[in-house]
Write a protein that binds this DNA or RNA. Structure first.
Length: 255
DNA sequence: ATGGTAGCCGCGCTA
């Protein structure tokens, strides 16, 4: 079973790439972020024709998440009940007995800003809810754009990013809290190349110079981590014409 | 020196 997460930065623009990628990679579950579409504009027909059920929660211009699966997701929840939020950033659903949480964690803009305070509130509210989800569903995945680089090795230039947004101590502590719940960073279950990133700024030739950060993650509960056979980042999608600024991240789970 | 690119449907905001 293959599970993936991809911040598409506009599903309208990236739909042709997504459909092609689904056909080639054949993932069983896909968590999408930054769809930037209201629900009535969601390309349900095209996704269905590709062989996927979709649940989605979107808004105009900003945010928006979707969960695609070959089998019908059940027990669907939109948003964190502990954190009422007009921004569409969270979907949870059960697919083939696995609780899948698709998250677009706030960016936070800059440490100390209003958006940073919102991010920290969002992170703080996620932890207890994840604990509840995990207690009810031992097989759980948290996948998406976390907007957190968990360690310095996840940052192209840790010195210039030290303490900055995506790297600040409170953000990293929230990530550690989720590991403390028993979740595993799937990417680090395996040996990986140095300077592996999932996001590169569109500006300043960020990708060409590999000036990126690893901020897109798939965390696995212990029973799933034990069955995980591979984890990776599909950099090829970032080399395309008109790419998303994020590459898809994937895991393989043995049946 | 606070730049730059992309996406939104807007004429700035967010990332």
């Amino acid at each position: 079973m293959k599970i993936a997460a991809w911040n598409v930065n506009s599903l309208k623009v990236r739909l042709p790439q997504l459909l092609e990628w689904l056909e080639v990679q054949r993932p069983d579950v896909v968590c999408l972020q930054e769809t930037k579409l209201e629900d009535h504009n969601f390309p349900q027909q095209e996704i269905a024709a590709a062989g996927y059920q979709a649940v989605f929660s979107g808004q105009k211009t900003y945010n928006g998440v979707a969960l695609l699966a070959r089998e019908m997701p059940v027990d669907i929840v939109f948003g964190n009940p502990h954190f009422p939020d007009p921004q569409k950033r969270l979907i949870a659903a059960t697919v083939r007995g696995i609780r899948v949480v698709c998250a677009y964690i706030p960016n936070g803009q800059a440490v100390g800003s209003d958006k940073y305070a919102y991010k920290l509130g969002w992170l703080g509210a996620l932890t207890p809810w994840l604990g509840e989800q995990l207690a009810a569903n031992p097989q759980m995945v948290l996948a998406g754009d976390f907007n957190i680089a968990p360690e310095d090795r996840d940052v192209h230039n840790p010195t210039s990013w030290a303490g900055q947004i995506l790297c600040s101590a409170p953000e990293r502590e929230a990530f550690q809290d989720w590991l403390g719940l028993g979740l595993k960073d799937s990417f680090r279950l395996f040996e990986q190349p140095e300077k592996s990133f999932s996001w590169w700024d569109y500006r300043m030739l960020g990708f060409q110079k590999n000036q990126g950060l690893r901020i897109d993650h798939i965390l696995l509960s212990k029973p799933l981590a034990a069955r995980c056979t591979a984890a990776g980042i599909d950099r090829e999608m970032r080399k395309r014409e008109r790419p998303s600024d994020h590459a898809p991240v994937t895991v393989d789970i043995a049946d």
